[in-house]
Design a protein around this nucleic acid. Structure first.
Lengths: 173, 173
DNA sequence: GATAAAAGTGAGTAATCACTTGCAAATGTA
DNA sequence: TACATTTGCAAGTGATTACTCACTTTTATC
């Protein structure tokens, strides 16, 4: 990975996340990255390939995050960890998550590489806690995760810590 | 409002919702509507104006929906009504809601014309029920609303009724 | 039925789109 | 040093973009 290759990925991630994939031209990515437009196609074949490269980077990061949750033994700690994720999206991850959530509404198929394993983990936790309908509970956690991430990325409420408290109370966490 | 004007709005709503605003050209809207491209600009000035006209239509529909909730007296019924909305998005409203949620991630400013009044209504309901932090609880309801709508529009889980039950149990509804 | 306004068309416009090509500079390898 | 490969750039390509304009057809009013 050359320096200019990283510059391109960085610029594309920023612009795609802020303006949307189809609203950003390859020439704008090139200008933002301080690189000739042709170089994008040399390294990533086409615009779609550029997007794929970004998503692949992010998928690796997400996989490692999820990997840590699987190791947790106490089911309450597992739920705490899952529901805490959206509250802890930091500056460096912000662009990536924003792009993922924006793409959901444009792509033809919903990307389940993140949500499917997370649902399984959550369902197991609820089963261990004796909940009567762990599958539905797990789905509700996914729904909460989506809503929380959206709030954190878009609406940015000032009282996130109080919201977390109100939420955790409902699960006795 | 002429017949062709309605055809244009209908076609634009469908395409914008399915493919995204900036991914759909005015020529494609014209072809879908069975109309000359110039007519779009005669009636709606420019592409942005076409989007505004669609959003205005939707805002009116949303306002009337929300108007019904304000009349409810029992605070538990109010919360039931708010949290039931996402479960009841029907086919005719589907395109409009999908467009709204997709646009959130592209527009520079978050549209609060729906969420702000809804938050106020929810906060009042929680206050009447004696919750200790009604503002945070209201924000959490907004977050749930977003997550539920996203699920209904995108992921379409098969067990929505069980999810609703699990959710309502947490609020003793 | 005459006339004016509104609705609608189709062929244009310059700018921008994703992408290609030919060639030079940098880099690795012997 | 010699040579091959990779990296990079500038100037293109045809297609498509949002939008305009001159024009015809339909509709409303008296």
């Amino acid at each position: 990975m050359t320096e200019k290759q990283e510059k391109i990925l960085e610029a594309a991630l920023k612009l795609f996340a802020e303006k949307g994939y189809s609203a950003v031209s390859t020439s704008k990515v090139a200008r933002e990255a301080g690189v000739s437009e042709g170089l994008i196609f040399r390294h990533f074949t086409n615009k779609e390939g550029l997007l794929q490269a970004i998503m692949e980077q992010g998928r690796e990061r997400a996989q490692s995050l999820l990997g840590g949750v699987v190791m947790i033994e106490d089911p309450k700690d597992t739920l705490r960890a899952i529901l805490s994720f959206p509250f802890e999206i930091n500056k460096s991850e912000h662009h990536y998550w924003r792009l993922i959530y924006a793409l959901k509404w444009q792509a033809d198929e919903y990307d389940q590489s993140m949500s499917l394993p997370m649902k399984k983990i959550a369902a197991d936790a609820f089963r261990n806690l004796g909940y009567s309908n762990p599958e539905a509970e797990a789905e509700l956690v996914l729904i909460l995760f989506d809503g929380l991430a959206t709030a954190q990325l878009l609406r940015k409420p000032s009282n996130m810590e109080e919201i977390r408290r109100a939420l955790f109370d409902k699960y006795y966490l």
